[in-house]
Design a protein around this nucleic acid. Structure first.
Lengths: 113, 113
DNA sequence: TTGATATATCGGAATGTGACGATATATTGA
DNA sequence: TCAATATATCGTCACATTCCGATATATCAA
């Protein structure tokens, strides 16, 4: 039972995260936990899209898409710039790695055409 | 479509997932989207734990922990075996890769002691 | 200007979730 | 057997979310 310590073993600590940090993480996950929002994220990963385009891709009306997009903008996942009467959404740079990780995980499990 | 976009991207498939699959994915994410459940998953990644141990680690009462654990068991994330009056939970083998990916993502963003 | 388009916002109904307390069941140990 | 422990279940309540329809605002096109 002597703990044989190999070189460069990862930190053996129990790797737990404070509960208030996990609460933040859970909030982020709740934002992701919606089929239309997931599809919107899949799309904006590949370029800019307008509210109407994303609504059509999700087969929902624009007002509904607008709310989903604003939610994701408020929590920092998306950024938008307005050009004329259109509003173009794209992924926020800082979240690209995390969102990519999660979307890749989902696609590996549920497939992507 | 935005014409200012540099459309040099190859016409690779838009990598979208059918909405009903995304609905399943969203359900899974909703299960994960809770601070106590996230901590439970962090713990059971490192071995088996009883309901009471997980409740203590989350600073909640056992009945609450019991419900969270049963939810994660029903959706396939956890498996349990009963030994005496204790019930030991651990990660379901088939979900280890996906859960590891997501927990790693969370820990990289929110830290883990 | 007028009319059409794109997006945003509001109100309300339906639904679901989580916390909580109380109780129930089962197993161990004395 | 009895009492204590470990876990499960139930009922209820407060709260948030989602969807829908209607309306509001802003911008473009003619």
């Amino acid at each position: 039972m002597g703990k044989k310590k190999t070189t460069s073993a990862p930190p053996a600590g129990p790797r737990i995260t404070p509960l208030d940090q996990l609460a933040e993480a859970a909030e982020c996950l709740r934002v992701l936990a919606h089929p239309h929002r997931l599809r919107m994220l899949q799309l904006v990963r590949q370029g800019d899209f307008t509210v109407g385009e994303l609504a059509a891709a999700c087969e929902i009306v624009s007002p509904a898409a607008s709310e989903h997009l604003r939610l994701m903008e408020r929590c920092g996942f998306l950024v938008a710039d307005q050009r004329g009467r259109r509003r173009y959404y794209r992924l926020a740079e800082e979240h690209v790695p995390h969102l990519t990780a999660i979307l890749t995980c989902i696609e590996s499990r549920f497939g992507a055409a």
